[in-house]
Each structure stands twice: as structure tokens, then as C-alpha cells.
């Protein structure tokens, strides 16, 4: 499904919805649509970051990544004063 252009990505029923079809057409109209809490949505979205060998953001190719104790495992790092290559 063309997820990004679909209203489903902002719907609170998205995870459990049985109506979502599996075509490539985006869903633009739905009588069951209900807006999800945006805060919840943002938190969920940022967790689905692209991982490269389990690392995200700047850590992808930082030479300290394997032993770094500065970062917290669940956050994506975009700012780091200790980044090294």
C-alpha cells in the first residue's frame, strides 16, 4: 500500500484495521477514519527508523559504536561531540 499518501497512517485504528486492502492505491476516503493522537503517532514513527546493522543516525559508521556507553540504545543520534571516523 502507498502508506505515506494514505490517510491510514494518521488513523488510530491503523494497527488493527481489517479494511485496509493490500493494493498499491492509497486510501483517501474511509468512514471509519479517526484521527490518532499526534503525539503518540510521532513517538511511534521515530522508532521506525532505518537501521544499519542495528545502528541508526550518526552511529551507523562511528568507530566508537560498538563500545560507546554515551548513547542510549533507544534513541536515534543526530548530534554528537564524540563522533569519530
Amino acid at each position: 500500500m502507498n502508506y505515506n499518501n494514505s490517510i491510514c497512517s494518521s488513523c488510530r485504528h491503523e494497527a488493527s484495521c481489517t479494511f485496509i486492502n493490500h493494493s498499491n492505491e492509497p486510501i483517501l476516503m474511509c468512514e471509519e477514519f479517526e484521527l490518532e493522537s499526534v503525539a503518540k503517532k510521532i513517538i511511534a514513527e521515530t522508532r521506525v527508523m532505518e537501521h544499519v546493522n542495528g545502528y541508526t543516525g550518526l552511529c551507523i559508521n562511528c568507530e566508537n559504536r560498538e563500545f560507546c556507553k554515551l548513547r542510549s540504545a533507544e534513541s536515534v543520534i543526530w548530534h554528537c561531540e564524540e563522533y569519530a571516523v
Binding site: 484521527l35 514513527e45 521515530t46
Partner: peptide, 23 residues
């Protein structure tokens, strides 16, 4: 805030890092 963010998300689909910063 949610209403504003809804528009930001619709207008910038797939840009979750940007959404979080604006939020």
C-alpha cells in the same frame, strides 16, 4: 497542538524526524 501537527504530518509525509522536531 495536535490539529497543527496533523497538517504538518499530512504536508510532509514520511518525514518522522522533522515531525518530532516541529512537535
Amino acid at each position: 497542538v495536535d490539529s497543527f501537527m496533523y497538517d504538518v504530518i499530512q504536508h510532509n509525509p514520511g518525514e518522522s524526524i522533522f515531525h518530532q522536531a516541529v512537535y
